[in-house]
């Protein structure tokens, strides 16, 4: 892994004639922990999507693992995404498959045998507290269970980076603390973590447990925050 996991240099993103992000520059170092905050609609999700190649910058340079993301073809982008675990607020599961199958989906698409990874899968689901729900289908899960399942799916390939978009948006305080502890634990394993959230209490709670950098988006620009927390 290079010195920077993700690097944005003067990145702008325009959609429908309006500029959502302007001249954004930031570097995520390996093993670092970041919060991305800002009001709703500020562009947090857009920035996260840029980081895993779901969107491409209108201008500027964005590199992930030292690869310019604009120069990658669709298959190369797919392979790159296996090194970036993503947790969405709405989770997105395949409802006709069981929880275990959903969490194992990254193994399937990357051609790895699910049977040989069965122990890891069981262990991972136990780690997120879903060891007893392997055969449940996503519609049967609570909001908190869905978020933890999404986190398990995001990390099953042991990615170098975990991007989480409002991971605590649909859960109560207790569950949000549990998810935060899991993300901090991942960071202690050496993963780079970037959490987009507008929940300032989550950021305050994290400060006592992990050295986190807080980035704030406002007026389409990215600023380093922290003093006001």
């Amino acid at each position: 892994m290079g010195a920077r996991v993700i690097e944005l240099e003067n990145v702008s993103y325009t959609y429908g004639g309006g500029e959502l992000l302007s001249d954004v520059s930031v570097q995520l170092q390996p093993g670092s922990f970041h919060f991305l905050t800002g009001p709703s609609g500020a562009g947090k999700t857009t920035l996260l999507k840029l980081c895993y190649g779901a969107l491409l910058p209108t201008s500027g340079r964005l590199s992930v693992f030292d690869q310019d993301i604009s120069s990658l073809d669709r298959d190369q982008l797919a392979v790159l995404r296996r090194r970036v675990g993503v947790v969405h607020q709405d989770c997105q599961f395949l409802d006709h498959m069981t929880l275990a199958e959903n969490v194992a989906l990254p193994l399937m698409v990357s051609g790895r045998s699910e049977s040989s990874e069965q122990d890891n899968l069981t262990e991972l689901l136990s780690w997120v507290g879903l060891g007893a729900r392997l055969e449940a289908h996503p519609p049967e899960l609570s909001g908190g269970e869905r978020q933890r399942a999404a986190l398990a799916r995001a990390v099953i390939l042991s990615p170098d980076v975990v991007l989480a978009d409002e991971p605590t948006g649909n859960v109560d305080w207790e569950m949000s603390q549990r998810l935060l502890r899991l993300l901090i634990e991942l960071n202690r394993m050496g993963k780079t973590v970037l959490i987009a959230t507008h929940d300032m209490s989550l950021i305050r709670a994290a400060k006592s447990q992990v050295q986190a950098r807080v980035l704030r988006i406002s007026q389409r620009k990215l600023h380093l925050a922290g003093a006001d927390l």
Binding site: A78, Q92, V109
Partner: peptide
């Protein structure tokens, strides 16, 4: 479309 989006998210190639 949502299934395709999930598959993309977890790193599925177009061929898959």
């Amino acid at each position: 479309a949502q299934i395709i989006e999930v598959l993309r998210l977890v790193g599925a190639r177009d061929g898959f």
